[in-house]
Each structure stands twice: as C-alpha cells, then as structure tokens.
Design a protein around this nucleic acid. Structure first.
Lengths: 226, 226
DNA sequence: GGGTCGCTTCGGCGGCCGCCGAAGCGACCG
DNA sequence: CGGTCGCTTCGGCGGCCGCCGAAGCGACCC
C-alpha cells in the first residue's frame, strides 16, 4: 500500500511540464498560472490542471489574489526534495548546446531556491572552510568562529527544525555549494544589505558592497570575476 | 533541456511496480529478478524490463551470477534519495488496515536500508542525544564523548564523503531516527557482534547481548519492550 | 547431449494521461 | 452594468507505456 504512495509522488514530477514548473519555482518567487504556462510552453488550461495536481500532492501552494492566482513552492522541504532529485538527474553525462549558453549566464552567481549557488556559491563553501567558519569533521557544522563572524556581518543564525548546513551539488559547477537554513539566512541578509541583487529569473548580481563581507567569509570576489 | 532530466528520473519511480522494487531493495540485500517479480506481483518478463530501466537510470545495479541475475541498490546516495521521496510520500494522512498489521510486525526494530529504524531506531536517537554522544546545536554532529563511547563499543567512525549523521523520518514512529554513515557502521557492528540479527525482510531481532552496548548509547531495552 | 531453469527479448493489446479549444465563472475596469 | 481579463472545468482526441505470453538464449544438471 505504502509503496503506491511513492509511485504517486514520483508520478507528479514525472511529467516534463510539471517538472519545468517545479524547477522555475525553485527561485522562491510566486508565479502566476499564466507565467508558468508560458515557461512550460503549454496552454493555460493545461497549466491550470498541472497546478491543481501539484497542489494536491503538496508540492506547491496556490494563493488567490484578486483574479490572479499565485503559485509557490509549498515549503523548504519540498524545495530540498526537488533539488535532491535534480541532483541525481544531473549526475550523468549531459549536455545540450543551448543549455550551455543559459548556464554561462547563470554560472557566476545565481540562487538555488533560497540560497546562493553558481561559482560564487562554490567559492563561499571553499572560503568558509578555509577560514574555519564551517567544518566537515563530522558532517557539516558551523564553528565557534563561524558564529562570531556571521554575527559581525549581521546574519542571524537560525535555530529551527531545518538543517543548518547541507551540501548541494551545484548544477553548473559540478561541485558542492552550501544549502540549508544558514545559507538561506545569509542570502536574505545579502539582499537586505545591498551586497547582491536579484536580476532575472535566478541570476544574481554581485554589487561592490559585497567585497568586504564576502572577504570575511573567505571569498576574494576580485579574483573570482568570470 | 535539464528540466526533462528531472522528469525522466521521476518517471522511473512513478510506476507502482518499480516503486515496490526500489522499496524492497532498501533492505540492502541483492534480490533476483524472479523475487522482485513476485514482490511486485507481475510477470517475470515485465519485471525484467523494469530492472533494465532501473539500471539505465542508475538506481540499481545488476550483477549476473551463473544463470541468476542479482539486483541491488546502486549506491547509498540512491537509497537516501528513495528514502527522501518516500518520506514526503508518507507525510500525509494514510493508512490502510492491512499496512498497520505489517507495521506492527516491523515497528519495534527494523532496518532502513543500512541502519536501524523503528522504535529502537528512534530510541537510539533520543538516547544518544540524552547521553551527549550527538548534538543538534548546529546540525547533527558527533560529540567528543560520542567518539569515545563508539570506540569502546568497537564501532568504527567512518570518514568518507557520505554524511556522518542525518535525520530520517521514521515511517512507523513518525519521529526521526538517525541515518547516515555512522548509523550504518553501528548496524554493521551490531550484527557482527551478535547484538542484533536480521529476521525477515527488514525485521530485526534484538538479542540479549545488545543490552549493555545499547545502555551505553542511552537506550534501556528492557523498558522499551513492545 | 537432452532437459530444465532463470532471464531476456519481442509483438501486440489496452488503459491512462497530457494535450488542446470551448465554455463557464469571478474579479476588476470603465 | 456590459466588457475584458485570468483562471478553471469539460469533452474528446492521440500517443505512450505497462502488461502479458511466446519464443529465444545461456547456464547448469544428469
């Protein structure tokens, strides 16, 4: 019986249109049904049906606002599940030509649901390790120094149920970057403080103000330019 | 393009027969194609086709031995992915009547791929936390005392790429138990040392010899009997 | 070497599901 | 209070895919 549940959940993501929707929703924003239809290249009516199914499966939430209907990922755990699955999917040969163009545009800095990824994301992981802010001795952990430095930068260290730090294989870099509650808080702080700014879909622009705080995290942005 | 990859991977698990196969394979053993066919309730020919597809997708490995053909999960990361998906699947209402009977049989102690789960698995997490062997201060980590105690028990602390400790929502207990490289090493030691013995599919029998080592891990087995 | 056994491959059937356009339905705009 | 706009629902079409039994193919047994 329980086994059927697994198949049902997988079936929801097994359709290319629904998969596309989930992936674009990983940018953390709320999309209208019409936008999702366009992104997936299908009729509005079909998109609406897909959204219904994603809602029923608990993957996304639909919030009506006036005559529009906004769709967003239901909760961070779902985002992590989709990322996990996408990681496995990208774990093999690949890749087309067109995608490499898109990847170029997104490669330097981008968001992965609610945290930084791309070249900058990977450098952040390396830098924080090198500075001793995080440790991999027994799983990924934040060190005492890490607590201090983040405090000085105005990044609150979350203490909820969600894992503080997780490795997340980067789609473009093929190396791990940091995911979890802490990187999410870091991105939020970075946007608030004007260190970075969201550009397009998932692209992120790194602003000059980022230089100092990122240096404190072990990242030399000047040496990193593409 | 990349989006299609996600859908393809999900599609592999979206079939009830293949999902069943993957779930039974979570016991870590190698199954023959015939056994899998019986478990899924389908013809041998169909099962063979499913196995081929699971192999192509990188979920399982097929190793020929004489005229038999053994199938097992391809690697621990795959097992974690399937568990992750199954967790999401079981995250809702549920449950039939028949399944509760099966659950009863498996509830006390069972394996979850390569580590202990069930009531004992949950108690292990609680006990190790209470004894200060693991900590949740910044993600799940093994403490210094944890290293010591495990050393005394003859459990080697792995240092590979795989995460040492992870929370894993228990299907039967609806609470977390410990997964990851360390719980896997613990189970292996427990079997070798005769603390526990594998019974049926995923059921585990806890032997008298388990009392002392489990007490060291903060678990009072006598108080735990079902 | 003939017989059996376990698995794989092949052909063909049947059902499910994703697709669209048309129609229905609120919400907002004048 | 008609008109438009965004979304949802409905009916029907078409293709894909999981299913089986039959046939093919090695490996083992005697």
């Amino acid at each position: 019986m329980e086994t059927i549940a697994l198949a049902e959940v997988a079936a929801v993501l097994a359709d290319p249109s629904r998969a596309t929707m989930c992936l674009v929703l990983l940018d953390g924003r709320a999309w209208t049904v019409g936008e999702l239809a366009k992104a997936a290249g299908i009729a509005l009516s079909t998109a609406s049906e897909h959204v219904t199914r994603l809602v029923d499966a608990g993957f996304v939430a639909r919030v009506k606002q006036g005559r529009a209907s906004y769709v967003r990922i239901a909760d961070p755990r779902v985002a992590e599940l989709i990322e996990h699955l996408a990681q496995h999917a990208e774990h093999r040969p690949v890749t087309g030509l067109k995608s490499s163009v898109r990847v170029r545009r997104l490669g330097f800095a981008r968001t992965c649901y609610d945290h930084l990824a791309g070249l900058v994301g990977v450098a952040l992981r390396d830098g924080m390790l090198a500075e001793g802010l995080v440790s991999t001795d027994a799983g990924l952990t934040l060190t005492g120094r890490g607590h201090e430095v983040l405090g000085e930068l105005g990044v609150p260290v979350p203490d909820g149920r969600r894992a503080l730090l997780r490795d997340c294989l980067d789609w473009t870099e093929r190396r791990d970057h940091l995911a979890g509650a802490l990187p999410a808080a870091l991105l939020e702080r970075a946007v608030d403080a004007g260190w970075v700014a969201a550009e397009g879909n998932r692209a992120v622009k790194v602003l000059p103000a980022a230089e100092k705080p990122f240096a404190a995290l072990g990242v030399d942005l000047a040496a990193l330019q593409p």
